[in-house]
Design a protein around this nucleic acid. Sequence first.
RNA 1: GAGGUUGUAGCUCAGUAGGUUAGAGCGUCGGAUUGUGGUUCCGAAGGUCGUGGGUUCGAGACCCAUCUUCCUCCCCA
Length: 456
Amino acid sequence: MAQKPAIPKGTRDFLPIEVARRNYIFDTIKQSFKNFGFLPIETPSFELSQTLMGKYGEEGDRLIFRILNSGDKQKKADIQALEEGNLPRFANSLSEKALRYDLTVPFARFVVQHQNDLSFPFKRYQIQPVWRADRPQHGRYQEFYQCDADVVGSDSLLYEVDFVQLFDEVLTNLGLPSFTIHINNRKILSGIAEVSGESDRLIDITVALDKLDKIGEEGVIKELTEKGVADSSIEKIKPLLTLSGSTKERIEIMRNYLSTSEIGLKGIEELLFVLDTVEKLGVEKANIVFDVTLARGLNYYTGAIFEVKADGVKMGSICGGGRYDDLTGLFGMPNMSGVGISFGADRIYDVLKELELFPKEVGQGLEVLFVNFGETEQAHCLPLVKDIRKNGISCELYPSKAKMQKQMKYANDIQVKYVAIVGENEIENNIIQLKNMETGEQEEVSVEELIMLVKK
RNA sequence: GAGGUUGUAGCUCAGUAGGUUAGAGCGUCGGAUUGUGGUUCCGAAGGUCGUGGGUUCGAGACCCAUCUUCCUCCCCA
């Protein structure tokens, strides 16, 4: 055998049944996006490096797939930088383009570039693959789809409310029995940093807080110490690690805690508005939890932040999102607040598969297969097939005369709903033996009756 | 980017302290059954043991490199 073919790590092929199931997820999400007034756009798979680099923090930059310059452009390579050991500069000289890392930053670029063609608030959705040079793991791929909905040009908190409802609608429609929307606000995190006297260590503090449920109270304290946060500040942060009570109670505690921080109180207010409004409207299957340790690494978030997890499944977050006040500012268009969310279709797929929540009919293909008895019968059946297809029913004639057993087995394997048997006798009487492959029942019908029967 | 783990037939895996022609189950194909599938019985095909080096009289097994898998960390969907 020749050397086995392979695909790069972190990528996958999809079988027909898998594509069908993925499309079911995409379609469900699209349906709700439309319901909420979002319209689709698309952007290129790759962007100029300068568009992406520096937008996701140091970690993010490392995970961006870069595209090697081709042809003569390779001559631009900065050999001097290589000799000096300046690898980033050397890499930049070799690569001017990169695969997109998410859909939000390209969207910000899109908004700035097309601002004259857009009406604000501008709402768009986008379902396209993104790439990350991450190490693959459970629920973690190098190529995966994001399903984003964003709105820019309004700082109204009603959009935060909308997105919470959108999470609820989509995941409920996909049949998830229980999931939790974690919600926090970057302003609260800024407030914490301010109150503890470490405003300039916002990122370090939030990253450490974010790990609470993983490394525990002591782990967080240890990490804070390592990052150089003063002991006196840690004492002020400590109480946050043991917050208990309902969401409302915890918010009240935080309100007191942040009483000297203007920005912190603003965050509390925003959070309360969103939670109260959502509560009045009601949700279906979502549990909504205020989580002061929720930080999210992406440093462009400035207001609300969301993260959704499926309950009872060992899987990272399946959705995320938040408000960013100045993403377009990075591309020269200030004062354009945006908020958006993202569904991780591939992780949702893994969750639905694990919980066996895909509807049975998803992925069912051919509806009627005609058995092939030979040339005469073939000639008789082909017009029937054509007729049935015209009525919107998927239909096919087995391509060659083979043993009936073989043809039936094929029908069984590809999960055909009905098998149509038309041999000498049936031609004579102008009928079709229609066998229901699920029940095994068989009846004699005309073409018209067949169409009626299969259609319902 | 750090550490660990995995790779043997299409799939899931055996393969003892290195020793003849590398096994099983499932699947595939053929037959029992020339107009009836998912069950049964019989038979067959299918592997330079991830790849490249090395040690050895001899390597699927040992060593090195590389790719891949899964996991922990980092980070994230």
